[in-house]
Design a protein around this nucleic acid. Structure first.
Ligand SMILES: [Mn+2]
Ligand SMILES: [Mn+2]
Ligand SMILES: [Zn+2]
Ligand SMILES: [Zn+2]
Lengths: 139, 139
DNA sequence: TCAAACTTTGCAATAGTGTTGCATCCAATT
DNA sequence: AATTGGATGCAACACTATTGCAAAGTTTGA
């Protein structure tokens, strides 16, 4: 994606657009799967773990990405859509974790249904992961 | 719970009923929240981490408990009902993770609805966690 | 233009959780 | 009693996440 577009996206979330952050944002955009810190480490070999870690943290704090917790035990991050505020239940969707290839996908079409919680339980977000075998691994 | 009852429950899942396992099972029964390894460590101070770890692993392998992955990053375990085989979607229910007190509850009433996955995606289980504030922390 | 103030990055160390190898113990079986 | 297999304890390790601090870079306002 063009540099100016990346800059805009970062600024829209009130994130200072540094070179590193634009590279990482671009990387996230190119991959439509949720990525963990180690995935960034593998690709940005010249950059320090900590920078990558803190970039993900900043992105998360500013609502640029959402966290997904799956059976891998690794915290994964996926881009939010531009309009997303990660509010419950509107912006919440399901995810698919493939037990074979270890990849996690956003099922953005699959919005979570609001549910009836017990008295006095206040929901704020959802972590919804369906485990199984993805289409690539099924064939 | 009485010793013989605990023995029965373990044998029903083809788990050798040792003293330690009965104590841990009893502990899980007494707490209706999902527990992590460290919770067991805190209580069974005279026992070794590894034994507790392997007991949970055995319980999980034999279908006595199910794993829950929430925002805490800690793998938590909760007892399955006697009839549960952890099959999708019948035995799958939602969970509630309180961001204040860090506790995770089984919402056994809240069975997950089967969903329409993309072509060739094979689901086998679900990790469904609703985050928010529990009734105890709301008041 | 320069210095002060603030932010980002890199390096090192540490914390926290989960996992394994191996020796010993124990209980069931013959 | 000897044999056998599983359970436990101890130690070490692997992997991920997190923090402190100093250096480098950037913005801001005399
Ligand atoms: Mn997602
Ligand atoms: Mn449960
Ligand atoms: Zn796959
Ligand atoms: Zn609570």
């Amino acid at each position: 994606m063009e540099k100016t577009k990346l800059e805009q996206k970062l600024k829209a979330r009130r994130i200072q657009p540094t070179a590193m952050r634009m590279l990482i944002l671009d990387f996230l955009i190119r991959h439509n799967e949720a990525l963990g810190l180690s995935d960034l480490e593998d690709h940005f070999t010249r950059s320090d773990r900590t920078t990558l870690y803190r970039t993900l943290k900043t992105f998360h704090d500013k609502g640029m990405v959402h966290e997904i917790h799956d059976e891998s035990g690794i915290t994964k991050y996926a881009l939010c859509s531009d309009e997303c505020n990660c509010t419950y239940p509107n912006d919440m969707h399901a995810h698919f974790y493939c037990l074979e290839c270890d990849k996690t996908l956003c099922l953005t079409e699959l919005t979570v249904p609001p549910v009836d919680l017990p008295e006095n339980y206040q929901p704020s977000s959802v972590n919804y992961v369906i485990n199984g075998t993805c289409s690539a691994c099924a064939s």
